[in-house]
Amino acid sequence: MSWFAKTFSSTIGRKIVMSITGLFLCSFLVIHLIGNFQLFKDDGGAAFNVYSHFMGHNPVIRVLEFVLLAGFVFHIWDAVALTRRNKAARSVGYAMNRPQDNSNWSSRNMGLLGTVILVFLIIHLYNFFLPTKTGGLDKVMVDGMMIDNLYIRVAESFKIWWYVALYVISMIALAYHLVHGFQSAFQTLGLNHKKYTPAIKTLGYVFSVLVCLGFASMPLYFFLFK
């Protein structure tokens, strides 16, 4: 193996990949959230459709889409590799164990939380992303252009109670994933300093709660008020 492959298949190397991809995915969440706020505009979905048309056709965004895919692939790949290794490191467990006395639940269940997020992602992409690629959506005229009416698909989906429940539960899982993950990524990257770590922890907490509340507010808004 080359030194490079050895480095990034070591336990620390894999964690460094997880932390960089994890923080990159956090930046994606911010962009995705801000864009999706177009859903709240009371214009019958015009602003949201223009925005999603832009995201689907702008060449820079199209390239970034592949970077994002790579981010997910590496994050999930190393998540599986590490979780399997960590499980294999203790084949006989304790008859009596009190981990709640020394650590947080979310930090011990990142694999479980990640799996919930992954299942959500697959359903989410199948429902909203795939149809924009396969032409499975109704068209609508905006500013003299025929574009996909993704808004209608979203509005209809968010009228289904179990779909809304799935979104809310998944956002709770994401929030817990990030409550641990955000600050953990900085520690993995070697940033632990008494001047900055308390601020990073607070920021991580606020980030996780606000972003996930933001995403969860969309299905709830459509379900309750539309």
Partner: peptide, 28 residues
């Protein structure tokens, strides 16, 4: 064959001499 670090922090909480997690950041 030890596992990887998930920054759980149980180690530092149980360490009898209080080795701090900052050392793990330094190691990384």
């Amino acid at each position: 064959g030890f596992g990887a670090c998930s920054n759980i922090g149980a180690c530092a909480a149980e360490c009898p001499v209080g080795i701090s997690l900052e050392n793990i950041a330094i190691l990384n």
